[in-house]
Design a protein around this nucleic acid. Sequence first.
DNA 1: TTAATACCTTGATCTGAATCAAGGGTATCA
DNA 2: TGATACCCTTGATTCAGATCAAGGTATTAA
Lengths: 207, 207
Amino acid sequence: MKILSGIAVRLTFKRGDMIFQDGDKGNGIYIVETGKIKVFKLSLDGREQILHIFGPGHTFGEVPVFQGKSFPASSMTLEPSDIIFLPRDRFVELITTTPALSMNMLADLSRRLRAFTIQIEALSLKEVPARLAAYILTLSKEQKNSTRVRLPISKAQLSNLIGTTPETISRMFKKMGDAGLIQVQTKTIDILDKEGLIELSESGRLQ
Amino acid sequence: MKILSGIAVRLTFKRGDMIFQDGDKGNGIYIVETGKIKVFKLSLDGREQILHIFGPGHTFGEVPVFQGKSFPASSMTLEPSDIIFLPRDRFVELITTTPALSMNMLADLSRRLRAFTIQIEALSLKEVPARLAAYILTLSKEQKNSTRVRLPISKAQLSNLIGTTPETISRMFKKMGDAGLIQVQTKTIDILDKEGLIELSESGRLQ
DNA sequence: TTAATACCTTGATCTGAATCAAGGGTATCA
DNA sequence: TGATACCCTTGATTCAGATCAAGGTATTAA
């Protein structure tokens, strides 16, 4: 833990460390310097739904600074990570004295609202194969539209992200392989039929 | 349609009128003056998921002003409504010259992120009876903790809000009645066992 | 006030995906 | 590097809730 500019703090975490918990009071924002974190909800019986995955440059934990004080979800590292913590007062001072910064913040929150809209649509109106196809297409876009995409998280985490179970992920990957859409390796997927994937992600049914 | 302050416009809608559609370009924000509107997503086969219901005083349609240009969802009136439209330029001018207004906007977007977090949790980690119980408890809180709550929307709309079908809503209301938790009338619900409802909303199973 | 439209309910059936079970594979950190 | 915890897969079974079907009841707009 190293003090930056007299106020911000660098926090160093191991893989799997908790950064904050659902319901905790939030007194500042977090910025990923290195590593990767997830923001997620847990059910009483231990099932998990991932809301966001953030990497270097992303800020998170703002909601309680602007509204309602407590965190609406928990957050944990997915890899060893360095996280900058900026206390509430200093952050609010920056925001209120820098109009451009506040517009950036409004844009960032809007981006997340848009992402949540898509996630709610997927959970409510689409089935697992469509959600999985959409995720693969998103990865492809993020990775220069490559036809070989790298899975940035384990398949178990992926199941928590798209709202299903590891067993179902495994079966759907198999079906999508049988259908000639993709070819799955341990940490990589080859896209064989992008059009087919797009159709599946929009409405399609498998087989 | 009446011009306000030379720039804002009052729009008058009948029940069931479309205000904007998913994918349209957004060039300003909307404020509900009177009436009630829903913001929702449609699937290709016509199923609907409601994201928000807004009444007098609420603003909506901000996301494309701050990020990405197009609306992430559609919006329609649920009753005859008057809506104020404030063009993008005028709104951005107000926001950038009034720090308090921009903080209010950040708080409003944060409130919606919190609400979406709860909605994703509900869709992914809870079953229909728990979602329905949570909705009844929310209504009760909004209505002075009364044990007789008024349903502000039809049961068909309610099914689109909590992510199920009218048939299932009907059956679950019946089961919750049989279990002695509530008594359902056409437009009103009496809460008979608030503790039981809370337990059901958190984790419980019906029967 | 009366069509017309939307809304609500109940029953029968179907199905996507969860759960339960179990064996083998793969990383990681002490 | 060896142990341990996690990860992945496949099969059998179960289940919550969707869909299909059909009749009755409210609202609303003309």
